[in-house]
């Protein structure tokens, strides 16, 4: 009887731990995903600005 309750306790602890690790990983993943999306948005904006500056400079050069 004692062995059965010990095994049941171990299984329940393992399940609880697995559940908690699941939520910890959701938290970490969410944090990284949001930051990575923001960094990618910054990179895209940087490229767009560089393209725009280059095209405006080229247009002004042509006019001269």
């Amino acid at each position: 009887m004692n062995v059965i309750s010990l095994v049941a306790q171990l299984v329940s602890d393992a399940e609880r731990l697995q559940h908690q690790y699941e939520f910890l990983s959701y938290g970490l993943t969410a944090a990284w995903v949001i930051l990575v999306i923001y960094v990618l948005m910054m990179v895209a904006r940087e490229r767009k600005l560089k393209r725009e500056i280059a095209s405006l400079r080229a247009m002004l050069e042509e006019r001269r």
Binding site: Y38, V39, M42, R45, E46, L49, K50, E52, I53, L56, R57, M59, L60, R63
Partner: peptide
């Protein structure tokens, strides 16, 4: 780091605005 990069982008945006004004004036 992100603020510094974003600041540089604002500088670039100001340069674009100035180039547009020059193009418009010509």
């Amino acid at each position: 780091v992100m603020v510094a990069v974003r600041l540089r982008q604002e500088e670039a945006q100001r340069e674009i605005d100035s180039l547009r004004r020059t193009a418009h004036a010509q």
